[in-house]
Design a protein around this nucleic acid. Structure first.
Length: 457
DNA sequence: TCTGGGGTCCTATAACCT
DNA sequence: TCTGAGGTTATAGGACCC
């Protein structure tokens, strides 16, 4: 999908169509997730700090991501892909490999091209958004093709033309070559793909190590036999938060780690997995990042066990100077939640301890603490996040354009409006105004997706 | 207003086992 | 019992991707 998050927002909000839109974190430490093509003209791009983006494009619309909406669109698109082949390998919400041969949807370049064109039409019809298609004999080349095709295009790389196409290009177009590897190669005088091929495998291995070196050499020769793999199980689950200001207070750090552990376990459980290795991540004030991990005797999905492991790991980390990010993850995932004797032991111990009276220092019992963490500070203003959908009793559906100083500004429009809607401002605690679910981008789109599992015509 | 959040894979080293 | 080779695991860090 092209500039996926930004395009989805433009489709949902007629007043933003044709305008610079930037989706990302809006806090003081936010970064750009996606910039619309209009915003890219100002030099805004993914991973750029928001502050910099605002300086480059002060008049752009700045929105927080709405993953529920993007997930819904993603499911529609993946549904279309699934109709082409059983072998669909999603890379992210907005990208996937499809093995067209395995689905007998195509057998040569020309039939593949026809499928690609039809797919692009279907995506536009069902989601209202544009997607780009790269067609080639391998995953690497299909990926490169789709990058070339953006926005709103289709690129077919015919068998036999691969080397000629790759040769003169920068090493950076090869997947797996980022800034670090790119620099490394540049210092060795290697700038283009054909220079990698010319250097030879031994030299690449010497420069980059065994796995990376020979892999890259193969890629440079346009050799890539990796199969399209459907449904890969995830191997880890993690949550992390970057704080608007560094945390110095050790007690607060401990509290945050515990909350993160709980959130991590929630995610673990909803995925019906358990894990054996608990990982703590700390990014310090100076952006130096360190991780500490501990492997348990068996997999667990017990919040108490993960919390305690994370707390133990924290004790081995020096946080003087402050931390900007904390994270808790679990890896070594097992498919099922086995009877966890270790967890039961810990729980029993915790209970015994509570019965024996408070150990000094650790103030609150777990349950109370959890509630305290969840509870809203009593007089909190409802948070109206820029870009989120709302509904007003009188004016109907709209979205938050901005809020501050006790006011919230709403633009009343829906994806189906041809013209931009009106703007009105309310008090943040206006009872008439409530948060709402995103509307589908295309009216009745859900039905269309459900019924088009055999791609029409 | 410097630098998110969720992942994957690879490497190096140490410890431990056979 | 000593020594060495080689494998497996645990741990930490880093590059990369969207």
């Amino acid at each position: 999908m092209d500039a996926f998050y930004a395009s989805a927002e433009q489709a949902a909000k007629p007043s933003l169509r044709g305008k610079a839109v930037v989706v990302g974190g809006l806090g003081p430490r936010g970064v750009v997730a996606t910039a619309s093509y209009e915003a890219r003209k100002f030099g805004v791009h993914s991973a750029m700090p928001m502050g910099q983006a605002r300086r480059l494009a002060p008049h752009a619309a700045y929105l927080v991501p709405r993953f529920r909406l993007y997930r819904a669109i993603s499911e529609q698109v993946m549904g279309l892909l699934g109709a082409l082949s059983p072998l669909v390998e999603p890379l992210s919400l907005d990208e996937a490999f499809v093995d067209l041969e395995a689905g007998e949807a195509a057998w040569d370049a020309d039939s593949a091209e026809a499928v690609g064109r039809r797919l692009r039409d279907d995506i536009r019809r069902v989601t209202g958004l544009t997607g780009s298609v790269g067609l080639a004999a391998s995953k690497m080349l299909a990926k490169i093709g789709s990058e070339e095709a953006k926005p709103d295009g289709l690129v077919l790389i015919r068998p036999g033309t691969e080397r000629a196409l790759l040769g003169p290009r920068s090493v950076r177009i090869l997947p797996g070559v980022g800034p670090a590897t790119g620099d490394h190669l540049r210092r060795a005088g290697i700038l283009t793909v054909e220079e990698i091929a010319g250097a030879g495998e031994d030299e690449m291995v010497r420069l980059l190590g065994k796995a990376h070196g020979s892999h890259l050499y193969e890629m440079a020769l346009a050799r890539d036999e990796r199969p399209v793999v459907a449904e890969r199980d995830s191997k880890s689950v993690s949550v992390e938060d970057t704080y608007d200001v560094d945390i110095h207070d050790r007690v607060r750090v401990r509290m945050e780690v515990r909350r993160l552990a709980d959130r991590c376990v929630e995610r673990l459980r909803s995925a019906e997995r358990s894990g054996r290795t608990v990982v703590l991540k700390v990014r310090r004030y100076d952006f130096s990042t360190l991780t500490r991990s501990e492997t348990l005797r068996g997999p667990t999905d017990d919040p108490g066990v993960v919390r305690e492991a994370a707390a133990r790991l924290l004790e081995s980390v020096d946080t003087t100077g402050g931390v900007r990010l904390l994270g808790v993850g679990v890896s070594g995932l097992a498919d099922f939640t086995q009877e966890d004797l270790f967890a039961q032991f810990a729980a029993a111990e915790e209970e015994a301890e509570a019965a024996a009276g408070e150990p000094e220092g650790t103030a609150v019992a777990p349950v109370e603490a959890a509630e305290e963490a969840e509870a809203e500070p009593e007089h909190v203003e409802r948070r109206w996040l820029a870009g989120h959908d709302v509904r007003h009793a009188e004016f109907g559906p709209g979205w938050v354009q901005g809020s501050g100083l006790g006011r919230v500004t709403v633009r009343f429009e829906t994806p189906y409006d041809a013209v931009r809607g009106r703007v009105r401002t309310f008090r943040v605690d206006d009872p008439e105004l409530v948060p709402a679910e995103p509307l589908p981008l295309v009216e009745g789109a859900e039905d269309q997706v459900g019924s088009s599992s055999a791609p029409a015509t």
